[in-house]
Simulated scan of single mutants.
Amino acid sequence: MLPAHLRYIVVEGPIGVGKTSLARRLAARISAELILEQAAENPFLARFYEDKRRFALAAQLFFLLSRTEQCRQLAQGDLFAGATVSDYLIDKDMLFARLNLEEAEFRLYQKLYQDLQPQTPAPDLVIYLQAAPATLAQRVRRRGLPYEQGMGEAYLAELARLYTEFFYHYDAAPLLIVNSERLNFADSEEDFELLFQRICEMRGAREFFNRGA
């Protein structure tokens, strides 16, 4: 069992790192409500990967509005009624906006973000999954979503860099940084149990988990 204070857990990391797989397993293990970003419902996402310049703003704004509504519902809900696991922080939207939008579009996005003021309760724990860009690219290819297959390693490398920079300064919640290079949470019960045990034992504000060779 998880410690009682871990009511709201967020799993984060760049595309392909395995955050949704881990969030699903963790929510199932502790009988928690599961909140997932709604990528499949974004009508602009596939077109974004075909033509980033043309559809970046539309795809980004859809995510912003969708996640803002989820945040509103979460903020109004009773987190003390049970545990909640999510596969994203709303703060990560700014990373993708900075990466994908041109300067004028980014200024517009910032204005809308400030006007909407999407907020959620602070997580009790954030699990930040890391992997090398080559590993991310391999995992993206393996999961086989057609619209992701043209995603280049350079794009994933820059996204991973932005995540590293963001979490270097992150102090809004306890943070467990996990090197997922040798971990497979989707298919390996042993890997999941190792991480689950590490979560249960976490006591500090920032800790690391890395499975050796």
Rank of each mutant, 00 (worst) to 15 (best):
R67A: 03
A46L: 04
G82S: 00
Y128N: 03
I127W: 01
R72Q: 09
L79A: 00
Y128A: 00
Q114P: 08
L95T: 03
F96V: 02
L45G: 05
A134D: 14
L57V: 01
Q110A: 06
R67V: 07
E41R: 13
V140C: 03
Q117V: 08
E41K: 10
R98H: 12
T120H: 13
A59V: 07
F55V: 00
L95I: 11
Q76W: 07
A122T: 06
Q138M: 05
L79F: 00
L64T: 09
S66C: 02
L34W: 06
Q114E: 14
L89M: 09
Q70M: 08
A27S: 12
E102Y: 01
A46T: 10
I127G: 01
A40M: 07
E69P: 10
Y49E: 00
D78A: 09
A56Y: 05
N42W: 08
L95M: 06
A27D: 08
F80H: 15
A32H: 04
R107D: 10
T68G: 12
R98W: 09
Q70S: 09
S31K: 13
L129K: 08
S86T: 13
P133C: 03
L95Q: 01
D51S: 06
F62G: 02
D91P: 10
A39R: 13
I35M: 10
A83I: 01
A131S: 10
Q110M: 04
L116H: 07
L64R: 10
A81C: 06
R67F: 08
R98M: 07
T135G: 07
V140K: 04
A104R: 14
M94R: 15
D93G: 05
N42M: 01
V140P: 11
C71K: 06
L108A: 12
E37W: 07
D87G: 09
